[in-house]
Design a protein around this nucleic acid. Sequence first.
DNA 1: TAGATTGTTAATCGATTAACAATC
DNA 2: TAGATTGTTAATCGATTAACAATC
Lengths: 179, 179
Amino acid sequence: MWVSATALAGDLGLSSILVRKDLSCTGLEGRPKYGFEIQPLIEAINISLGWDNTTDAILVGAGNLGTALTGYDGFMQYGLQIVAVFDSDPKKIGRKIHGIEVLNMNKVVDFIERTKIPMAVLTVPAVNAQKIAEKIADAGIRGIWNFAPVKLKLSKNIIIQRMDLASSFAELSSRLKEK
Amino acid sequence: MWVSATALAGDLGLSSILVRKDLSCTGLEGRPKYGFEIQPLIEAINISLGWDNTTDAILVGAGNLGTALTGYDGFMQYGLQIVAVFDSDPKKIGRKIHGIEVLNMNKVVDFIERTKIPMAVLTVPAVNAQKIAEKIADAGIRGIWNFAPVKLKLSKNIIIQRMDLASSFAELSSRLKEK
DNA sequence: TAGATTGTTAATCGATTAACAATC
DNA sequence: TAGATTGTTAATCGATTAACAATC
C-alpha cells in the first residue's frame, strides 16, 4: 500500500533525497513515517511524464533495429503506440512486421499531413537521417526520437531526442579501460 | 586535412569551447588558425575512447533487440565484437542469427570462464536480468551493457552501463507535452 | 600585421547532496 | 514519547561557458 522514498532509493541505487526531489515534480505529497501511497504515486508519475495518454508515432526505417522496436511490448507501458512503419526498400514494402504493414516511404508526407501524427521514431541509416528528418519535419512531425548516430539539425520547434548507442558504449569502454 | 574545433562544433551543435575541452582529453594539440589534423585526431579519439582495439563481448538474450544488435554493423566501428550469443529458448538454440550460432544459456558460465571474455551485452527480459547478471558476473564478466529496464545490483568491481529506452522516451514525451 | 583559432583560468549554471525543522 | 520519514533551504559538486592571452 505504501512505499517510502528511502525504500525506492534502495531499490534504484539512488539517494533518498534525490527520489524525494524527483517525486516532488509530480505534485504528490508523501506522509511522514509512511511514505507515498503506491497507486496514486504510479498514477502521478505517469501523468507527470506524459505516459498517461498514448502518443501515436510512426516508425521510419524497418531495418533490424526498427523491427525490434516495432515489436517491443514495453513501449505501450510508456504510452507510445507505433501506428505505421515506413521504408523505401521494395522488398520490405507490403510485408508485415509484428502485425503492422510496412508502407512505402513516398507516402510518409501524405500520411503525416492527413493524420497529424505528432511523433516519429527514426531508425534509418545515418547517411539518410538528416534528409528524412527534414522531410517528415516539413510534413508536420513535432517530435523525433532519433536512433541514427547523427546530430539532426532542424528548425527549433521540432523536438529531437537522441538515443545514442555509440556514446553509451564509449562510456562503458573507457570505464573498462580505466581499471 | 584540417578541421577546427569551431567547425566541429557547428556540425555537432555544440559550443567550440566544449569541443576543445573534450578534445584536450585526447592529449592532442591543435594548431592555432588551422585546428586539428584530421587523421591524427581520429586516431587519438579512438585511442582515448578505447575504440582502437576491439573488445570481445557475448550477447545474452536473442530476442528482437538482441538480434538487431547482433546484426548492427556499427559496433565494429566502436571496437565492439560480438563473438557469441546465448539464449535459453530451445526454439532459438542452434539457429544462427547474422552468422552467429545461438548457444544454450546453460553453457554461458563455462564459456566465460574458458574464454575470459570481458564484456556482455544484456538484452533479456527485465524480470530475468538481475539473476542472469549475477550469474555472468560470478563467472568473470567485468563489464555489462544493460538494455533491460532494470537497475542491476552487482559487486562494485563489475562495471554496468545502462541503455535506457524508457528514460529517453520519457524525456521526449515530457518535452512534447510542455509545448 | 590582422584575424582566426588555440588552450586555460575563472565564472556560471544546474543537478545532487547535506542539514534540519516539521510531522505522523 | 521516540523514531522514521517528509519537504525545503543552503551547500557542494561537476560540467559548461565566458574571457582572454598566446600563437600561427
